[in-house]
Nucleic acid binder design. Structure first.
Lengths: 171, 171
DNA sequence: GTCTATATACAGATAGAC
DNA sequence: GTCTATCTGTATATAGAC
């Protein structure tokens, strides 16, 4: 059911992710859905919980990456269809629609990434640079549901971008 | 009335920006609002028109900026609560909610900025860098439901960030 | 546990008085 | 021009059968 709700949010936007549509996509009735999630708020909270769990794993992966934290972080900011990116986009849709709990959760996530990257850059401005390029990549690759964002660097161009950012920012 | 609609979109999200709420915020009744804007679509179109007018001015300002196009562009990408930033966030909310006209308008705006910056950077990767930092600044600003400054560099830190990006990207 | 049926609230939009 | 009153559709949520 949570998967169905997430998919509707990612692929059709917040307005389409109604209790009715979620129940139908999950193959149950609205009553059945509301037996498990007592309200729409509960459904949204479930998604935010999922986000926090997946971010725990991602933070660990950043620290352990052989390519280095900055390169791993930037590269993973441009991915599009792994579970973390999907739930991140879904929660972003809730935030855009005015859910302040979702907004707060996204802030916390960004803060955690920020702290994970901080020890690996030369200073506060270099830290800003890495975080903003990451946000830009995420915005373009994942938040493109509205068709607004431009193309994201891939392959060799991504490698050169990472090299450029690391040259400018690395500790 | 457009101001009221825009403020509701920026500060409380798309769901809160109803005809009722807009009318109340503008100090008229729903009937009065619908006399001037015959439908919600008309209200949204009015906001998109406002965006296009302000972007015309902004493109001209980028070209003419004494500080340089890159510096001006990055500075204006951060939410400063000026009219362009506000209408941009408002129209983004409409796009996220499924308004395809808003989506097309935003894509055009993005392309215009991209073309305005391209002559002033050293190459494609440097162009990516500037556009991505800009997107990152915008993303963080737009994420903030309240419309007050988000976790983006300001003041002297913004100056240093701009200097860093220009050093890395300038033609 | 999951269903159907229904209650309640609120959205956008229309009609007609003033 | 702006208002109040109202229509219609649709969303969340509840009640109770099976």
């Amino acid at each position: 059911m949570l998967d169905a709700f997430e998919s509707l949010l990612v692929e059709q936007g917040e307005r389409a992710a109604t209790m009715d549509a979620t129940a139908k996509a999950a193959g149950v009735s609205k009553g059945g859905l509301l037996y498990h999630f007592g309200s729409k708020d509960a459904l949204e909270s479930g998604l935010i919980d999922r986000l926090n769990v997946l971010v725990d794993d991602d933070i660990a992966a950043i620290e352990a990456s052989p390519e280095g934290p900055i390169a791993y972080f930037l590269r993973s900011s441009a991915m599009e269809n792994d579970p973390l990116d999907r739930v991140l986009v879904a929660v972003s849709r809730l935030a855009q629609a005015g859910n302040t709990t979702a907004t707060a959760a996204l802030r916390t996530v960004r803060d955690r990434w920020s702290e994970a990257i901080r020890p690996h850059v030369g200073g506060p401005v270099e830290h800003d640079l890495v975080m903003l390029v990451s946000d830009g990549l995420y915005y373009n690759s994942a938040l493109d549901g509205s068709g607004v964002a431009g193309p994201v660097p891939t392959g060799a161009e991504m490698d050169r971008l990472i090299a450029l950012v690391e040259r400018s920012a690395k500790a």
